[in-house]
């Protein structure tokens, strides 16, 4: 009935290809977003690192005491947990407004829409990079992983980033149409943070829980965190995380293929 709502997969892929071609646009804008946030502050984006450092330094010793764990093993676990969770949660929440924030531009010019999602993910990867300094510091204190493990973590990060693009696309489209969803997603993520082994360890539970086995966030978290902690993670984790990332991308792409031309009318 409506020409703007017919499933057009090639056009959706072409949109991504154009974003790739014009990568300077979202790369530059993502970096600009970060600079923007800390403009007029003396330390600038370094505040990202400092804020996170304060959080970890404050929580680490206390929770190590509460959980009765050795600080040397708990601190890197916590640091990685908070930082990676921060990436997952912030990317998800900010994806809600990926298109809405660009409404003015989208309504008047023809830019590839996927670039707005890529800008959001890229911006959060940059935040992650600022926090990576802390990860390095903590690991220097607790013991560096081997090169092979480092490579595993890099692979895990790639899976995480691809998953973030898929879910970002999915969420951005959905939240543009239904404006309540942003609140729903923000509150769900808050609950999920406590249900996911971010602060606590999975082996602290008396028995294997559904919270872990059926928690997609846990797999995304583990494929980066575990190798950096020097843990030998079963290959199954990588398979599940990859499958989740692929699933998110497929779902996002299908929704995008159907509603790409419609998004501008929802703004």
């Amino acid at each position: 009935m409506d020409a703007t709502m017919k499933l057009d997969l090639p056009a959706a892929l072409l949109d991504f290809a154009e974003s790739w071609q014009k990568s300077y646009l979202w790369l530059r804008l993502g970096w600009f977003d970060i600079q923007q946030r800390f403009r007029r502050s003396v330390l600038g984006p370094l505040w990202i690192t400092l804020t996170m450092a304060a959080l970890i330094a404050g929580m680490g010793p206390l929770y190590a005491l509460i959980f009765d764990l050795e600080l040397k093993t708990y601190l890197p676990y916590l640091a990685l947990g908070i930082i990676l969770w921060g990436f997952i949660a912030t990317t998800t929440v900010e994806s809600c407004s990926a298109f809405i924030a660009g409404a003015g531009v989208i309504r008047q010019t023809r830019l590839p829409l996927s670039s707005f999602v890529l800008r959001t993910v890229w911006r959060n990867l940059l935040v992650l990079a600022f926090n990576a300094v802390l990860i390095l510091v903590v690991l220097l204190y607790a013991g560096l992983p081997s090169l092979a493990r480092l490579a595993e973590a890099a692979g895990g990060l790639l899976i995480l980033a691809v998953g973030a693009i898929g879910s970002g696309l999915l969420i951005a489209i959905f939240c543009t149409r239904y404006r309540d969803m942003q609140q729903v997603i923000a509150s769900l993520l808050q609950v999920l943070m406590f249900l996911t082994p971010v602060f606590w360890r999975a082996d602290q539970l008396p028995q294997r829980s559904l919270l872990i086995d059926w928690n997609p966030a846990y797999y995304f978290l583990e494929v980066v965190r575990a190798p950096l902690l020097g843990v030998d993670l079963p290959g199954r984790y990588y398979e599940i995380a990859s499958a989740l990332a692929a699933g998110l991308c497929l779902a996002g792409l299908l929704l995008f293929a159907r509603y790409r031309l419609r998004i501008v009318y929802w703004l």
Binding site: A3, T4, R107, Q108, T109, R110, V264
Partner: peptide, 10 residues
């Protein structure tokens, strides 16, 4: 004409 709006039909 700017390519921002895709037509609903046509």
């Amino acid at each position: 004409l700017a390519g921002a709006y895709a037509p609903t039909s046509g």
